[in-house]
Nucleic acid binder design. Structure first.
Length: 888
RNA sequence: GCCCGGAUGGCGGAACUGGUAGACGCGCCGGACUCAAAAUCCGGUGGUGGUGACACCGUGUGGGUUCGAUUCCCUCUCCGGGCACCA
């Protein structure tokens, strides 16, 4: 055995062995318990970043651990390969997105291999390949048939200079990111998926998903946003209102009927409320700027029209919406209170959203903070109708308590009713009048999947002048995206690709035009975890192997996907369940969200000009002469740079660490060990060059310990019955360590403490004598436990050390070692003695000592005596094997 | 505003079910090896007082429960994340 640890050679050899033996190719085996461990697949951006390394190491540790514990494991990998960055790179370099993407995939695949992840590459999938995305198209056609996919007009950001649609993140302060032109809103037809039909089920199931973090479940519940309330109507009769022309739904109220322009139209203004118990406190109604009644009122009112335009434009930044000042303007229209029949003025309010509920609210200034603010500003009446005991109502200033539930007052027949009783009674009375019913409203919107982009999955429809929009027949799938186009910044290049565009209408055969919109890339990632079970199937989307491998036993990824990706995946799984393709509705049994990787950020801010960021690898940090202050200096020019604190690694802050440099210098095992040791996996991880050194040092010490042991020659077999006290203690620690590592990886997922335990074992072993033959046998066992226990985390070096410890077979096929219960047994234990809650003594006592013995031993201790003194002992609490607590 | 986390040495973190606070690592200090440095190895390292054994203080704040609280309950402060004029 070589004395020096040389990671490059060790790692190449281990990886070559795994490759040749095809160790990680998973086979279905109904006789064995499967374990499907999946890490979120990467976007092929060019190179791996530390976030990938952390994510995939967590998955790899679990995969290898479960494999050793007898599970039939599957850990696949693929590429989320469609998307905007490829188009941007194409524009910058004049290379087709396909080439850029496949080059990146080749490079990153080599990186993943160099990190030694136990991935089944035979199932690799790439979403930009027609073998994959044809099934996006296939399922989209099924969704059209099922009515889940539908067409609707949507609003997009339009860059008038580039003549292209911009994604939200390409709009900066209302301007195009490339052209700096003012972005316009354009209405175009788009496809939507009816995820809202599944809102109730998606929300309800969350509460049973014990394998998901509470945080993620809360975020999804928030996002779905269920509100239970009442949809109620305020009847009106308005002169000259064109109900049909304004798209107002006629009917719903008593005496409503069709009316043409200039007639008196009867209608109902609908509003949604969760507080119908405050109905008798309504003093106005407010509608959104886009509301048809507002449009009507603005026809002959230029001031109102101008105000509505102002509201529609809104603040550039969305976060400002919530804080902007409330503004409004009366429409001059009046509706009737549904129960009191009083006249209620209708206002346009900038705080009313057209996209939520009915686009109109009933104004109850006494019990809603926003309505209160609005009423104060425009001097509208404030009528308190809810009484909370111990609270005086004042109309001068708002108190959050005014929104509390309470008892109705000033509300006629409802006086005295508590919240729920009031809601029930008022809803029943509204229902009898046909002016209201209980309703549930959702924050969740249907999922718009159309993107006016080239590098995505084509939406399989054809536009025919006579037949309209016609779905592509199934036998014509896939609609293949041309891969040789280069976007030039002037819109979707598919629009100029005659070969792609021209197609006969499937219905009438006449010349027609292909849809050029592509699908949101979230579509690609909404079902890839299913496809890994049957990636080679070219006849159907899924097959019976899915039933064996799915649901995913452990899904691992970043918290940034807590909402969209995970919610869309749950939705797609439900659709496939409905189609009969799946027997389950939830795709991920257990979810693990790993923390971000942080690093210090260094910068200089010239008096004029932009802040310049410097990569930490190019910065030297030292202590100044007084050792009080850290000084950061750029190596290139020797001048100082400022530290901006420790933040998430990102391109924009230039504080990323290149995993490749790390692997090249220290090896994959050090990279893996550091990322697993520096913090618990769900917490943020702070980068530390010294910490990496520490990880490297530990592996070297492990190597050295095995080397020194091996150089002493083969040890005698372990004879458990012939051990002395120190040998038994060493063995005990070995098996305690094994038990801890098993529990920490298998149950707690605290890899950092598992590693700490292994370090302790090695520290103890360094002090353990090697004089007698059985010392060496105990050492052999301890080293084997350390090597096997650490093998999921540092698989390469342990692969080599296992051979050096005298084993002919490979570690990868070794089962997880069992804990020897006999080794854990001990004859004496240390107990602590407290006097009035303070630690006063530690005693070594027989492990099976009874309460009386412990009590007597504790009281006899001189230091305990000193603190008890002459005081009478009031109480003695004895916890066997742990402590004695004396109260005086 | 609502919802979810969090706060422990110089730093990252440990203490799992209420029972020895600070495991493990980093950094720092001292020593060995070396002509020297690096690497490596050994020892020390929460604060205060004491030559010392030891004592007192100490887990964001204030209170409570308990023989005993980093851990449970209440209050407040600060930090991170999600949602947000959501009616």
């Amino acid at each position: 055995m070589q004395e020096r640890y040389e990671p490059a050679a060790v790692e190449a050899q281990a990886q070559q062995y795994w490759d040749q033996q095809r160790c990680f190719e998973a086979k279905e085996d109904s006789g064995r318990d499967k374990y499907y461990c999946l890490s979120m697949f990467p976007y092929p951006s060019g190179r791996l970043h530390m976030g990938h390394v952390r994510n995939y190491t967590i998955g790899d540790v679990l995969t290898r651990f479960m494999r050793m514990n007898g599970r039939n494991v599957l850990q696949p990998m693929g590429w989320d390969a469609f998307g905007l960055p490829a188009e941007n790179a194409a524009m910058a370099n004049g290379v087709p997105p396909a080439k850029w993407t496949f080059d990146n995939i080749a490079y990153m695949k080599a990186q993943l291999k160099s990190l030694g992840f136990a991935l089944d590459w035979s199932r690799e999938l790439t979403t930009c390949r027609p073998e994959y995305y044809r099934w996006n198209q296939w399922l989209f056609l099924r969704m059209l048939e099922m009515g889940i996919a539908y067409q609707k007009t949507g609003v997009v950001n339009w860059d008038p200079v580039d003549k292209t649609v911009l994604a939200n993140e390409q709009v900066i302060d209302g301007r195009g990111w490339r052209t700096n032109a003012l972005v316009e809103k354009r209405e175009i037809p788009m496809y939507y998926l009816k995820i809202t039909d599944y809102a109730e089920d998606l929300l309800e199931t969350l509460s049973h998903m014990q394998g998901w973090p509470e945080r993620v479940r809360a975020m999804q519940a928030n996002w779905i946003g269920k509100s239970v309330g009442v949809r109620l109507g305020f009847p009106y009769e308005i002169e000259g209102l064109d109900i049909a022309g304004l798209g107002l739904a006629a009917g719903g109220g008593p005496g409503s009927g069709a009316a043409g322009p200039d007639a008196i139209a009867k209608g109902v203004l609908h509003a949604f409320t969760t507080r119908v118990d405050t109905l008798m406190g309504v003093t106005f109604c407010a509608v959104a700027a886009e509301h048809p009644l507002a449009t009507h009122a603005a026809r002959d009112n230029p001031k109102l029209a101008a105000f509505i335009e102002e509201c529609k434009r809104g603040p550039a930044v969305e976060a400002e919406q919530a804080t902007q000042e409330k503004k409004g303007m009366p429409t001059g229209l009046v509706v009737r209170h549904p129960l009191s029949h009083e006249a209620v003025p209708v206002w346009v309010g900038n705080y009313v959203l057209m996209s939520y509920g009915e686009g109109a609210v009933m104004g109850v200034p006494a019990h809603d903070e926003r309505d209160f603010e609005f009423a104060k500003k425009y001097h509208l009446p404030i009528k308190p109708v809810i009484e909370v005991p111990g609270r005086e109502y004042s109309t001068h200033a708002w108190s959050p308590r005014y929104a509390d539930h309470g008892r109705c007052v000033n509300s006629g027949v409802y006086d005295g009713l508590e919240f729920q009783a009031a809601v029930d009674a008022i809803a029943a009375d509204l229902g009898a009048l046909g002016l209201g019913e209980k309703q549930t409203t959702w924050r969740l919107r249907d999922w718009g999947i159309s993107r006016q982009r080239y590098w995505g999955c084509p939406i399989p429809v054809i536009h025919c002048a006579t037949c309209g929009t016609v779905p592509v027949p199934e036998e014509q799938l896939p609609v293949v995206l041309p891969v040789n186009l280069v976007p030039d910044g002037s819109g979707n290049p598919l629009l100029k690709d005659a070969a792609f565009l021209a197609v006969p209408c499937p219905r009438c055969g006449a010349a027609a035009r292909r849809e050029t919109d592509t699908m949101d890339t979230f579509v690609d990632s909404s079902w890839y975890f299913l496809r890994f079970a049957c990636a080679d199937n070219n006849r159907s989307m899924l097959d019976s192997r899915v039933q064996y491998w799915l649901p995913v036993d452990q899904y691992i990824g970043g918290i940034e996907h807590a909402i969209l990706h995970l919610l869309y995946s749950r939705f797609w799984t439900r659709v496939l369940h409905e189609l009969g393709a799946l027997k389950f509705k939830e795709p991920f049994a257990n979810l693990f969200t790993q923390g971000m990787v942080l690093n210090e950020v260094f910068f200089r801010k010239p008096d004029a000009g932009r802040v310049e960021y410097f990569n930490p690898a190019d910065v030297e940090v030292t202590l100044d002469a007084t050792a009080q202050r850290r000084v950061a200096v750029l190596r290139a020019d020797g001048l100082e740079v400022e530290s901006g604190g420790i933040v998430t690694m990102s391109k924009s802050k230039n504080n990323g660490v290149d995993p490749q440099a790390l692997v090249d210098e220290f090896g994959a095992d050090t990279a893996r060990l550091f990322t697993m040791f520096a913090a618990p996996p769900e917490q943020t991880l702070e980068w530390s060059d010294e910490g990496v050194q520490g990880a490297y040092r530990f592996i070297k010490r492990l190597w050295k310990a095995v080397h020194e042991h091996v150089m002493r020659g083969a040890p005698a077999p372990l004879d458990k019955s012939a051990l002395n006290e120190s040998q038994r203690a060493m063995r005990r620690q070995s098996h305690q360590t094994l038990a801890k590592i098993t529990d920490d990886i298998g149950r707690r997922r605290t890899f950092n403490t598992a590693i700490a335990a292994a370090m302790e074992l090695l520290n103890a072993l360094a002090k353990f004598p090697q004089a007698q033959p059985q010392d060496r046998s105990v050492t052999q066992e301890a080293l084997e436990i350390a090597v096997l226990g650490l093998s999921p985390i540092i698989p390469h070096v342990t692969h080599a050390l296992w051979h050096h410890l005298g084993h002919a077979t490979a570690l990868i096929d070794e089962p997880w070692p069992p804990v020897d219960a006999e080794a854990l047994q001990t004859s004496t234990v240390e107990i602590v003695v407290q006097v009035n809650g303070k630690l006063r003594a530690r005693l070594s006592v027989a492990a099976d000592a009874d309460e009386g013995t412990l009590r007597a031993a504790a009281l006899a201790d001189p230091n305990v005596q000193k603190f008890v003194g002459a005081n009478p002992v009031r109480k003695v609490i004895v916890v066997r094997g742990k402590l004695v607590s004396i109260v005086v």
